Computed example of a mutant assay.
Amino acid sequence: MQFTLLFKMASDSFDWPLDEAAKNSGALPRIYKRGWLAMARKLGMTFPDSLDEIEVIDDEPRAPKKELKAMQRLSLTAKKLEAAGLIKCLRKGSPQKRNNAIWLLTIGTPDENREVEAYVRQRLHIWGEPCGGTVGAPMPQPDDGLVSHARPSVPTFCPHLSGNCSDLQ
C-alpha cells in the first residue's frame, strides 16, 4: 500500500527541475495536494459492495462509509511514508476550511530535497517552523510583485527548513 500511494502521489506531481512550460504554468515540483478522497477514488477504494451502501450526495451516487474508511487507510499509510522520510507534510488539511494537506515528496537527494522544499515554500508562502527560540537569518521575502508595505512581513526563522538548529549553537 505504501508503494502504491507514493507511486500515485509521484505520478500526480511534477518532476524537479521544472521545465519552462511547467514554470510558466505555475506548477509545483514533487507536491501532492489533491486530497485523500481523490486518491481513494483513483485507487478504486470507494466502489460500493452493494446498492444499499449508495447515497446520493450533491446529485452524485457515493458510498460515504467506504470513502471514510479509504481516507483513514490512506492517512495511516501516509504517516508510515512520512515516518520513513519519503513524504513531508508542508500544510495540514482542514475539513472545516475545505482544503487538503500539501505533501512534499522527498524522493531526491538531501540537497535536492532542501532545494525543492525551499522553492515550494517560497511559491506557496509557507514558511518554516520557528527554531525553539534560536533566531536564524530572516527567510527570503517572496517576490510576488507587491510593494513591501502591502505584503505581510515574514517572521525570522531558522534558515534550515527542517527546523533543527542544533548546528547553529
Score class of each variant (00 low, 15 high):
residue 32 Y to C: 04
residue 32 Y to F: 15
residue 33 K to T: 12
residue 34 R to T: 13
residue 34 R to L: 11
residue 35 G to F: 07
residue 39 M to W: 04
residue 41 R to H: 13
residue 44 G to K: 01
residue 44 G to I: 06
residue 44 G to Q: 02
residue 46 T to Q: 01
residue 48 P to Q: 01
residue 50 S to D: 12
residue 51 L to Y: 08
residue 51 L to N: 12
residue 52 D to Q: 15
residue 52 D to E: 15
residue 54 I to V: 15
residue 57 I to T: 06
residue 58 D to C: 02
residue 59 D to I: 00
residue 60 E to D: 10
residue 60 E to Y: 06
residue 61 P to W: 04
residue 62 R to S: 00
residue 63 A to Q: 00
residue 67 E to L: 01
residue 68 L to S: 10
residue 68 L to H: 10
residue 69 K to Y: 08
residue 71 M to D: 00
residue 73 R to K: 15
residue 73 R to W: 12
residue 77 T to F: 01
residue 79 K to I: 02
residue 80 K to T: 07
residue 82 E to P: 00
residue 84 A to S: 13
residue 85 G to L: 08
residue 85 G to K: 08
residue 87 I to A: 05
residue 88 K to W: 07
residue 92 K to H: 12
residue 93 G to T: 06
residue 94 S to I: 10
residue 94 S to Y: 09
residue 95 P to Y: 11
residue 98 R to L: 12
residue 99 N to Q: 14
residue 100 N to E: 13
residue 100 N to I: 08
residue 100 N to K: 13
residue 104 L to R: 02
residue 105 L to R: 04
residue 108 G to K: 05
residue 109 T to F: 12
residue 112 E to C: 14
residue 112 E to I: 14
residue 112 E to A: 11
residue 113 N to P: 05
residue 115 E to S: 12
residue 115 E to P: 04
residue 116 V to Y: 01
residue 117 E to C: 09
residue 117 E to M: 11
residue 118 A to E: 07
residue 120 V to W: 02
residue 121 R to M: 09
residue 121 R to L: 01
residue 123 R to S: 14
residue 123 R to D: 05
residue 126 I to W: 06
residue 127 W to H: 04
residue 130 P to M: 00
residue 132 G to T: 12
residue 134 T to K: 14
residue 136 G to L: 03
residue 136 G to R: 00
residue 137 A to H: 11
residue 139 M to I: 12
